[in-house]
């Protein structure tokens, strides 16, 4: 374990602390990943820089059609947020399926991303939402698409010993848009998924205007089935079409045989099932939304 535990009072102070320890210090948020990694010798940092007391990083808010989520926001807060539930339900569902209540009370959504597992429930939903993250370094802050953070299983391109992610953002789902999250696991709670999928659908009239599909863990990083989603755009999302799109997504997915998670073949077929169900639920919710909005 580490030797020192620090609470910076500001973002700048956090970055200074990281710099001062020249790679020996690391950002910690909820610690639900980091504590175990440190105990198991997978994280050698000697100084923890705890960001959970920096003022002003605990928001979930909407500005100009974008939803911003601060680095301190936990899975529990996301899952319970009325804003997220109504304008990005897929993320509420993803975060709501993480671990159990005690884990969701502590683990953060940003930490879920930085931990960079291809199975992470929060991250998969964020991929479907096409989220961006804000990276803060001593040199300044910049926004980058979430996908640029991923370099492999557990490998994040942002080094938590040198930089910090301050917030996330994505476009709030609007009229005629909805998402859904599906998950398959060895039991019904308190367990990482053997497969998960998130889908977003935007409808105009009876045609799909926009679609996005993310699947995990079927590759080294969360997988976006772009071609499959493309095959839905401009089409009527009937059962047939959705099945075919789901098939395409499954074909593109590359799960591996895993002793504990199951065979590649099973999970490949399941990717199709989960994507189909997620798309179907998303379409249903979206058309409901459209109907409602049209009436209002």
């Amino acid at each position: 374990m580490w030797d020192e535990y620090l609470f910076p009072a500001s973002l700048d102070e956090a970055l200074e602390m990281l710099e001062a320890h020249g790679g020996e210090a690391r950002i910690i948020a909820g610690g639900t990943d980091l504590v175990l990694q440190s105990q198991r010798g997978q994280c050698s940092a000697k100084v923890m820089v705890d960001i959970t007391r920096i003022p002003g990083l605990d928001y979930i808010e909407e500005r100009d059609g974008l939803i911003y989520i601060g680095a301190q926001v936990t899975h529990g807060q996301v899952a319970a947020s009325p804003l997220i539930r109504s304008r990005a339900g897929v993320l509420a569902q993803g975060c709501g399926s993480v671990g159990g209540p005690q884990i969701r009370n502590v683990g953060t959504l940003v930490g879920n991303v930085v931990n960079a597992l291809p199975a992470a429930d929060g991250a998969i939903a964020l991929f479907a939402l096409d989220a961006e993250v804000e990276v803060a370094e001593r040199a300044g802050r910049h926004w980058t698409p979430i996908a640029t953070l991923y370099a492999g299983v557990g490998l994040c391109t942002v080094d938590p010993c040198a930089a910090m992610i301050t917030q996330l953002r994505f476009r709030a789902l609007g009229k005629g848009e909805a998402g859904a999250f599906e998950r398959l696991a060895k039991r019904r709670a308190l367990v990482l998924p053997i497969l998960n999928a998130a889908a977003i659908v935007g409808l105009k009239g009876n045609k799909v205007e926009r679609a996005r599909i993310a699947i995990g863990p079927v590759a080294q990083t969360p997988f976006v089935a772009a071609e499959a989603a493309e095959a839905l755009v401009g089409r009527t999302p009937d059962e047939d079409r959705i099945s075919r799109v789901a098939q395409l997504a499954a074909q593109a997915a590359q799960p591996r045989d895993s002793l504990l998670r199951g065979s590649a073949e099973y999970r490949k077929v399941m990717a199709g099932v989960l994507v189909r169900r997620a798309l179907w639920r998303a379409v249903e919710a979206a058309s409901l939304q459209e109907g409602e909005d049209a009436n209002s």
Binding site: G100, K186, R187, R188, A189, V191
Partner: peptide, 8 residues
């Protein structure tokens, strides 16, 4: 090793 949770 997964023993059933309450949800199972």
């Amino acid at each position: 090793y997964h023993i059933p949770t309450v949800a199972d």
